[in-house]
Write a protein that binds this DNA or RNA. Sequence first.
DNA 1: TTTTTTTTAGAACATATATTCTTTACAGGT
DNA 2: ACCTGTAAAGAATATATGTTCTAAAAAAAA
Lengths: 192, 192
Amino acid sequence: MPRKAQYNLDAILSQAIDVFLEHGYHGAIMDEIIARTEFNRRGFYLEFGSKQTFLYMVLEHYQNHHLSKVIKHLESNQGLESINQFFNQYVEHVKGKGCLLINSITELGFDDQKVREIGRHYLDRLQIDFIGCLEKAMSLGQIHTNTNIESTALQLTSYVQGFAVNAVLAGETDELQLATQALLGPLQSNNH
Amino acid sequence: MPRKAQYNLDAILSQAIDVFLEHGYHGAIMDEIIARTEFNRRGFYLEFGSKQTFLYMVLEHYQNHHLSKVIKHLESNQGLESINQFFNQYVEHVKGKGCLLINSITELGFDDQKVREIGRHYLDRLQIDFIGCLEKAMSLGQIHTNTNIESTALQLTSYVQGFAVNAVLAGETDELQLATQALLGPLQSNNH
DNA sequence: TTTTTTTTAGAACATATATTCTTTACAGGT
DNA sequence: ACCTGTAAAGAATATATGTTCTAAAAAAAA
């Protein structure tokens, strides 16, 4: 009977994330992808067909296994506390690396419709999750009743992207952590 | 006497911006850069030496001749009105294209120190200009005296990056314009 | 007009890179 | 222990791409 594949698909997809984060899509060459994943060329093309479809799989995996862990805070629906936890973990997640989704949007969004779709979906999800948290926060009296929830959610979504870009530049995490507090502090109703 | 060069350097740098915006740095191939600029290969390498140093020149040009026109609103120091004008023009500037600086940071920031420097410089400038506007706005009584200027400037800087990313995805400009109003409205003191 | 010098246009080159192919090694059933 | 079929490693291939080179054209001065 045939030998069984030794590689673990999830592990490979996770390893590839770092390669794409470091060099971008076009900058990440197959030689490095192969070398830094527990993979071999033949298996790669049997499994994925091309570098492009591989990227799509990596992006899906990135959302489902990495970003989800961070976003789940927003979906636990504990109001303002959830938002705080999300940002703390997000800063940790992107520090020194950035966000693969944001990077893919800015590098490939113009040419690659699929990347555009994935990106739109991700930003929509963020926006909706923030709205959920803010509604909960309002019902808990954590934020002013006259807060415009939709536009606040939009602000928060923008922060997330701002962090993703800044994280590439800022080696230090402190700066981003301070920024988080500066951004979220004013939301709380006792600050008004 | 020798013939004079026919190409206009500024025009070429401006034309190249679009190519890099559409395909990113590695995705923009020399053939297209040559074809879409009033240029020829020999002149290109005589003038710039390499694609990489060409990018640096394009980034400088992008800042000095394109972004500056938008940022100058912030440097005219009219308080809140300047911020409004800036965002309106910025949205117009990035719509459907994104921002070359942000794109370069996310694609090349990890590998290219010079791009990192240029990016940091740009974000610092934004932050400082916002602080200037906010201080003026406070002295004019346009915003609450207990507004934390530094953290508000940080928020605005984040918005800018959020817009740059969104602009790649959003074909419509309306969405971004509405977002601007949603973001800036709450700043005004009469909304508190 | 002729000469001179440089630009243009694009062919040529060398390297890089995605993809395919070949060979060797190995797991598992008989 | 011996096949057998698949995986692993990496050589080979074809194409893409950044850079250089060549020959023709064109502008300016004599």
